[in-house]
Design a protein around this nucleic acid. Sequence first.
DNA 1: GCGATCACG
DNA 2: GACGTACGTGATCGCA
Length: 929
Amino acid sequence: MAAKSKSETRLYLVDGSGYLFRAYFAMARSREGLTRQSDGLPVGAVLGFSNMLNKLLTDMQDEHDPTHLAVIFDYSGKTFRNEIYPDYKGNRPDAPEDLIPQFPLVRKATRAFNVPCIETEGFEADDIIATYARNVEADGGEVVIISSDKDLMQLVSDKVSMFDPMKNKKIGREEVIEKFGLGPEHVVDIQSLAGDSSDNVPGVPGVGIKTAAQLIEEYGDLETLLSRAEEIKQNKRRENLIEFAEQARISKKLVELRTDVPLEFAVDELKMRSIDLDLLLPFLEEMEFTKLIDRVKREVGMADLDARSGPPPAPDGDIAYETVFSEPALKAWIARAHERGVIAVDTETDSLNAMRANLVGVSLSTRAGEGCYIPLGHGAEGLALDDEDTGKQIPLDKALKILKPMLEDESILKIGQNLKYDALVLSRYGINIAPFDDTMLMSYALDCGKGGHGMDELAKRHLDYETIKFSDVAGTGKKAKTFDQIAIKEAAKYAAEDADITFRLWEILKPRLAAEGKTTVYETLERPLAPVIVAMEREGVKIDKAVLARLSSDFAQRMAAAEAEAHKLAGEDFNLGSPKQISDILFGKLGLPGGKKTAKGAWSTKADVLEQLAAEGHDLPQVLLDWRGLSKLKSTYTDSLPGEINPETGRVHTSYAMASTTTGRLASTDPNLQNIPIRTEDGRKIRTAFIHEKGSVLVSADYSQIELRLVAHIADLKSMKQAFADGVDIHALTASEMFDVPVEGMDPMIRRRAKAINFGIIYGISAFGLANQLGISRSEAKDYIDAYFKKFPGIRQYMDDTIASAKAEGFVETIFGRRTYVGGINDKNPAMRGYSERQAINAPIQGAAADVIRRAMIRMPAALKKAHLNAKMLLQVHDELIFECPKDEADKTCAVVSEIMVGAPAPAVTLSVPLIVDARAGNNWDEAH
DNA sequence: GCGATCACG
DNA sequence: GACGTACGTGATCGCA
């Protein structure tokens, strides 16, 4: 490869307006001062902009080597695009009031940083950027556009690339293809078809980016496509392409960037100039950016002296992290935390169970590429760890005494990955970590549905880095070590890397929250819930071992009887727990007709198959069903729950996963307390084992029909909303509407069918599914669904709209703004697509219900405290909250809890249906529910 | 380690 | 009209 000539131009163009807006929204939501100290002038965005510009300039010293640089701004006023299409950007809200005075200030800031500042009347920044880019490209130079705006992606070529300053990520041809499905040369055509709601580019109705890419790939370009639109197979799409052809052509004029803008500066005039403190410092002082002044002085001063300035080394598993063995060394890290105001924290323990875990070490990082590990409990418990470092560890209590003030310091932001775990462990050592950010929760708010949110996965996704795996240092299987048994040298590499990676992820994810409009979701549904769950998990729930023991032996006896009976009926002994052996007996030896097959092709023996056989008069299937029911209850609940009792607290502490579902629900593990039986009589007995301390009671409060109520609201189902407002039986009302029968004296079977349909709606109904559920024919099920759509036309509309937007955008959102990406919705496999479509329909409903109860949970501790109640929130089961409270506070607790739950959507959302909560106290969970 | 099954909302 | 599903989870078991 030939060496590049140094004389070649490398022009860096910063999208100043884009930068400014991102700075504003990033600052507006942070806790930092938004106004100038002396007179209250709003300068938050200017500070953010200046910080980013400074960061960009200093980063460039190593990561980039521009020869030329300029910041480009939009001209404030009408542009030529408004003459083509008066509504262009017409739906843009006015700029926030406190941003307006900052427009001139950022231009001043740019000049203060000694960077050319360019804008041209009648054109947008993008057109100026395009003109410079094409000019430089034509002369054989290179261009890097500092922006993540997709409207600029059409410019990407082998000489022109983009760089996303928030994500620190290059955008080249590959990334453009990722975004648009095709290369940069097709971007204009794709955007012309798909339109853009934020710029109010009309495009063609019903065509999103995915469809547009598909069409352009097939037909080559927009004009060819439009001229051959008759060939399109899909009726609606063909009609739209024909009817809206002119609209697509107009869209193209709006989308296509001009490359003939008269240039105020020649490229040569954009040559890099170094920072001029005489220019910069007066401006920063005028703005009263004291911290930035210090940083700039430090950076400029250190640049020549300190070879380590500039960006940190890329993570390569080879960074020399510090292992902290002395109190002065630890105090130096605390000082660094105070200086920087932000620190990534990770704890290492000897167990994944936060309620049983002992602290083994703590790792810290205050900037990318740096990190330390403070070993505290290696080789404890008299383990003969052959490691000279073991004796050098700082004693645990001394280290915690030094760490505690920093971890609790209001002015130092602690960053964690799944910080709930660390917070719970630390809380058991008397440390309440705050304030904090959690990269896992940020990822969940931003990228739900795109994959997991564990650190290894995030490091791969955002940093393209393979972390050291826990199993690499600890081993797997029976020989797996706990962290305290790992040599400190090995442990330190793993642990310090975790803190470093966490810090890097935070730098990427935090700005994305504001840029992608997910700050509210993160700040109102995710972050504040973590401490609430920590308290719940730590509280735990009391279990009556004796009740479970009695149930276990009762179940065991009845299982033995069933087993004997089954062997007798089968004429041979076999393992009732083996689906394979059951299948051999039933469908082989006894010659019964097999119903369904499993995914792998074997005959299914699941409950509904056995029930069918039992209904046909066969005895063995019923015995197997009885045995299975008992076996499930015994092995999953009555046998194992006693082993989950924590020896220190005498209670059971579940763990709630905050970022594992695609809908916003929590998930409960170790043990799962969200699937305690209730539907059968035997099963419900298990709930009597969930009890309270003496002098207390359990209170259970659950939302009635919350998902259906949310459907009625979201899809604007008038008659259903009325029914909820009137407090009538919703399933009977549905049946009455659908089948045109009076509610009075209704056949229970009719009501049952309506109920099944109401549930089906929530799941993204299909004729097949409904037929299966009700045991009716598919065509009959289809008639029901059609009748439903006719009576509740809003539901059809909701489903169509939701699927259409999911196909176009790739995601769906709840009424609270929680987003879930739905993959496979444009898949060519109809089964896959159908599945994704049902997901798209269900997620905003299930997710909104999850959002509502999260809001209630977040407000609950303060509400109880304000009412002088001592109730403790113990459990959450999706639409139900369980509390333990003093007996004489039961009534008041029920009232307060209900009030908070009912009012949870407000003020963010005003529901057009009432929410109903049933709250009751009892001596055990069964009684309270 | 994975599929089948079944507990919950 | 294809394809094979009701949505979202976690724990346990048998079996490779």
